[in-house]
Design a protein around this nucleic acid. Sequence first.
DNA 1: CACTGTGGCCGTGGCC
DNA 2: GGCCACGGCCAC
Length: 739
Amino acid sequence: MNMSLDRFITKEPEQKRKPEPMEPKPKPPEQPKVIIEKETEENEEPLEEEEVEIEGFEEPEEALLEETVFEAETPENTGPCFLLSVSYSGKKSCALVKLYDPEKGKIYFWYDNTGHKPYLLTDMPLQEVMKNPSVLKNPGFDPAHCQVVRKTDLLLDTEVELTKVTAKDPLSIGGRGKGLRDILPQTWESRIRYHDCYIYDRELYPGYLYRIRNGTLERVEYKIPDGEIEAFKKIFPPEDEVFKEALDRWLPLFSCPAPNYRRVAIDIEVSTPQLDRIPDAKAAEYPVISAAIVSSDGVKRVLLLRREEISLGEKPSELSDVELIFYEDEKKLIEDIFKVLSSYPIVLTFNGDNFDLRYLWHRALKLGFRKDQIPITLGREVALLSVGIHIDLYKLLHNKAIQVYAFGNKYREVTLDAVASALLGIKKVPLEKLVTELSYMDLAAYCFRDAELTYSLSSFNNDMVMNLITLLMRISRLSMEDVTRQGVSNWIKNLLYFEHRKRGYLIPRQEDILRIKGETFTRAVIKGKKYLGAIVIEPRPGVYFNVVVLDFASLYPSIIKQWNISYETVRCPHSECRSNVLPNTPHWVCKKRKGLMSLITGLLRDIRVYWFKPKSKDKSLPEGLRRWYDIVQHALKVILNASYGVFGAEVFPLYCPPAAESTTAIGRYVITNTISKAKEEGVDVIYGDTDSVFLHNPSQEQINRLLNWVEEQFSIDLEVDKVYSYVTFSKRKKNYLGV
DNA sequence: CACTGTGGCCGTGGCC
DNA sequence: GGCCACGGCCAC
């Protein structure tokens, strides 16, 4: 199965895709145009909160994102491309969209030409804003685009009129120092980073298909075969308009295959005086002595710096098809690394944010490069590329949700060695001495292995990681850079913000939610926790034969869907909803409005459970397609598993304790009632935990009656999860053995 | 520095 | 030796 694009577009004659790796002498990759202009001093990443001023003569890197002059082509027309990122171009004062052309394997730039401006919302009337002296004094204030906007305030369920206050640049909304958000007494949506704001307002889906036509950015609709749409409709009888609309919008996002990204992995070695010391990237005191490059188009190369008293060493067999290039001059070596960095659409590193790219940036400056000659942009804790996208696999693999749900907790420690041996079965080259003391060949072998492992992490299991990233971009609506660096709560936040904007809902402030909804009512069993969680049934010790385990298929997402749980619907403002009390809680839930989280969680849950999960196991489908569906259902699982938890997390901007505790309260209600019913039916219940019940030797009829009863009673799915020949229980909970 | 939640078991170390 | 608080790790 190929993940080619031939399913959706009829235009351009299909070109044969680039050959895969292992070409002995690959053609050097086509390079985007590199234009050298004079230095600019523009800022990016302006909406960072609470920047700390660091004194010192050197401008701290935390403060600024320097813009370099490396650029990609900006064509007026393109074929279908994948949207990889949106950022803000300080130089052009507008949004910059990076598109990936899967045919040519390169990046195009598209600069916003719609006149979109950074803005915030305030309840100060427009006329007052226009004559407010502090506002007028702000040089970034842009009176020309200010206007009155109408929004739905979900917390009060009212329509509100607000003033949209626009600025000439994102920094003027609220960077360091006094932005408009600090001047105005009350603001909303003023802490959203500009590039996210742009994605919401243009309803862009990163990771999905776009093209440039006559200079305009357009979405390309991925065509789903008619047969599949019909099959889908059979499984999802259209419930209501909202649901159907969302279905039309979501299904193509999940069905459109990800491209086979042209990409390069890179790793550098720096001469170190001590073995146990990682060189300080900021000081960049020591020379870069080697760099290894492994790419999807077959480049395998190690750049080596010639130094005194280093022997050549014996060429190991693993370097037999690796090109070795020696440099007399470190500056030239780094220049060549920069050429690679600026000529690939995607660059992979392991810890490049904090080390490799950061070191190169500082080292280059030290060696006399001008800032605009460095194709890297440093942020406080990221290192981005001027042309392409930098993915730091260390950051991605550090993500707990990815660790647990995508890789099944296979690696414990997030080091290249641990991750690679767990996922790939290959280890780093063991080091017996300082890299500085290695012969050229040994150094090359060591460095090359690291780059090779880094590349392999992106390619193993048929590019599983790249496919997963692409899907998570589409779900979260985050750029490739952001989705690989942020945690699951940020993915969900961004998805919900997007959906608010799309529907004209005001994005609420956390303190307003907390003030109106209040804290929790229940108390946790465990000290230090905020509210009561799930129930674990005391196991009856012993050995049991023929044990059937019933399991609620994603219980919490189902509850969120079925009981209409969302921050705006739990304890809604309507007096007529107050009687609609949620079981085991003093909270009521809205009868008039479908909760946004309830809608989205329910939708994603249903799509996963009824469509992608069964398809991922359908042996009648081609293997490649099945694999794709499996990644889709995994990506959905990652999001769904966090959808309840975020409501109970203070870091989540839509934090809503009553919504979180209602979800677990309903969970307890559901499992308790299910167990009672089972006992009523004469079934022996020997154990249960959160969403599972263990039945001892039940008859098929008893099982069926129970499943049907649950379906009727709660409209959620109880399934037979496992059948054990025998299970042994000790008297301890969460500790059993089933065969 | 990373940032979805709670429930439960177990080993460690402080304290009497 | 017994009690307890705490952190790490797992189940869900």
